[in-house]
Simulated scan of single mutants.
Amino acid sequence: MAKNLVQSGQTLNFTAAAAVMSGQAVAIGDMIVVSHGDVAAGQVGVGHAVGVFDLPKTAAADIAQGASVYLKDGEIGTDNTGVYAGKAWITAGGGTTSVHVAINVGGV
């Protein structure tokens, strides 16, 4: 094993600016994590930095499989003014309320 390995990079500690629910996507800089558990405002939580998660999406957004998606106002959409979230793992048409996202994959 490399002597300079710090960790596997699958999780990241974060300080919650506001209360966070388990499974909620949280923006940290220019990336997102998905909270492992409930975290009170001001407390440190653990966020998953890799994986595919079912996340709430903007109902009107029509998201194609493989599309770059962004977190904005707590929802996933294609509006690139949000924080880059990853790639849509499945197609999620307008009117649906969630989408599977491979988080922090691919970049923009």
Rank of each mutant, 00 (worst) to 15 (best):
M1A: 13
A2I: 11
K3F: 09
K3S: 13
L5T: 15
V6M: 15
F14P: 00
F14E: 07
F14G: 05
T15P: 03
A17R: 10
A17Y: 02
A17H: 05
G23K: 02
A25D: 01
A27V: 08
A27N: 10
I28G: 05
V33G: 02
V33K: 02
S35E: 03
H36Q: 14
H36M: 08
G37P: 00
G37S: 15
A40N: 09
A41M: 10
V44M: 08
G47Y: 03
G47R: 06
H48K: 12
V52T: 15
L55A: 03
T58D: 10
A64P: 05
A64M: 10
G66W: 07
V69S: 00
V69Q: 02
D73Y: 10
G74I: 09
I76C: 06
I76M: 10
T78L: 11
T78A: 03
T81Y: 04
G82Y: 03
V83Q: 04
Y84Q: 07
A85C: 10
A85Y: 01
A85K: 11
K87N: 09
A88E: 07
G93R: 10
G94V: 03
G94Y: 02
G94H: 08
T96R: 06
S98E: 01
V99S: 00
V99H: 01
V101K: 00
V105S: 13
G106V: 07
G107L: 14
G107T: 13
